[in-house]
Design a protein around this nucleic acid. Sequence first.
DNA 1: GTGAAAGCGCTAACAC
DNA 2: GTGTTAGCGCTTTCAC
Lengths: 334, 334
Amino acid sequence: MRVTIAHVALRAGVSKATVSRVLNGKGETDASTAARVRRVVKELGYVPSAGAVSLAKGRTGVVGVLAPALTRPWIAQVMQGVVDAMESSNHGLMLFTRNRGDDSFRRFAGHVDANAFDGLLVIEPEETLPAVDRMAAAGLPVVLISDRTAAARMPVVASGNRAGARQAAEHLLSLGRRHPLVLGGPEGYDCAVERVESFTEAFTEAGFPVPQQAHFPGDYSGESGRVAVTRAEADGIEFDSVFTHNDLSASGVLQLLAQLGRSVPDDVAVACFDDAGHAPLTAPPLTAVRRPLRDMGAEAARMLVSALAGDGALDKPVEIATELVVRDSSVRVG
Amino acid sequence: MRVTIAHVALRAGVSKATVSRVLNGKGETDASTAARVRRVVKELGYVPSAGAVSLAKGRTGVVGVLAPALTRPWIAQVMQGVVDAMESSNHGLMLFTRNRGDDSFRRFAGHVDANAFDGLLVIEPEETLPAVDRMAAAGLPVVLISDRTAAARMPVVASGNRAGARQAAEHLLSLGRRHPLVLGGPEGYDCAVERVESFTEAFTEAGFPVPQQAHFPGDYSGESGRVAVTRAEADGIEFDSVFTHNDLSASGVLQLLAQLGRSVPDDVAVACFDDAGHAPLTAPPLTAVRRPLRDMGAEAARMLVSALAGDGALDKPVEIATELVVRDSSVRVG
DNA sequence: GTGAAAGCGCTAACAC
DNA sequence: GTGTTAGCGCTTTCAC
């Protein structure tokens, strides 16, 4: 049988209300009564029932997180930051993914309707943005973690696409590279567009505009990296460097360059975004514009928690700076 | 204002009890009444409050998951399997990690005491096994996902360490490899011990025992892979293959072999466990004993859910077979 | 087949 | 400062 507040009250010789006051620090309580209650609480090992508390308070103490999927390394990084921050604030964390598309989202929406949590964190909403927006409009506190500007009417945490891409470009330029291959992102991904724009802008400013045929489509996969290099070679395009949007596609690039016998970094320098996992583990290790993923997750979590606590006014977008991590794929540092 | 069961009852001209019956399919209800109730439910967009339901039923409809951390790729894979399965059963999923050690676990234990969820999934409990065991003994349904046999008195889902290691060994033997370097795992990790035993056993049976000096300590990190190869070279140990416990350490091995100018797979064949993420993305891609991580997570989740539903008797350990995925790091297949 | 009433375990007014 | 009394929104006997 579960220990309830009634047991504690009985044993401490006070009412349930007093126990509640002591535990929640609400209202004045006599010091000795409080001490006695606390002793009994400890003796009995009493812990308030989360369900009962949330029903009575109208708040669950739980935060929901909606992520596209967990298997992409960058998302796992963000999630860990979120989890750590939530833990610190003693909130529970209900996890949802959109791994199975619409059905996933419907199930998730059901939990929203059931008031299963007090606030929501969304990692890259993508096509669910309108629906999420509606939830926010309906009164659910929401914080977005997204590098896509379309973000809209909700508070959002991002890293700097433009600044980061420029870091990569300037690094390559400083190494004397003049002919980069540039991988794009999937159709409609603002983040990739911004990066490509900023990257090429820097090259143009330096007097080395990137020709159209040096641009290749990408989808963040290793395969898209392989395909881009294969096509560039087949098309006879000369290049001395490659810029991609994540560790994965850059890995694909390295694989193919190795296969073609082109030396990295002597012949071709490779740089990418993210640094979300295996960038240090490729051969050679990848130079990367590190997105502060853990920090982004943690910051978003803190914003949401403080919004729940009523410390409103968090609507200014937060941008956490990227950092260029130079490794052997662009210049020998080992 | 939230729509409650009372609103539905009023509007449908029935009592709250009847609405509840219709929604939960308990007890007989007149077909036309049921239809009317359902119509009103839809009209009003009524969704029962998760908190109220769980307080009344004594069950939360939520399952807890305790993972070491999310950033290790294999764990993210398991988690995705768990999430997908939980979604199918319409359970909520509260996520906890032990990322920050004892403090993390204490916070987690608080949620257990607060009855925040009905059942628990634990991924590699490691040093928390005794504490988890106590929770199980106290009546919390628990399912473990672990390749470490110490598992104990709880239902557990595992993949085959011994069978998997043998697959790798026999593959290398079939390629004519006779002198493997073998990386171990951290002190006290049964899974690594079992794999190493089974791997060397296979070589011994084939008439090629692995000498003591070909064994190196490991900790699943890329660095440990680099160190092992470096030391083997320095010690003048001859080897024609390397076996490691995951993609990461194998990546380290590949990095250093590349640096030493040793060709993979011609000179050295590399094989590893896990296949949890970037094995296909290394240069060359890694041959790996694939652990069925997603499936393990999903199966454990299903076991827990059916235990919660009262379909007891799931105490036999479940082992899901590994599968050897041959890629270019052992023999050219590309 | 359906309604009334009594909880589930807690918090929050409102008295005293 | 502390107790009493209502709820929070459901489910579940127990009558009818």
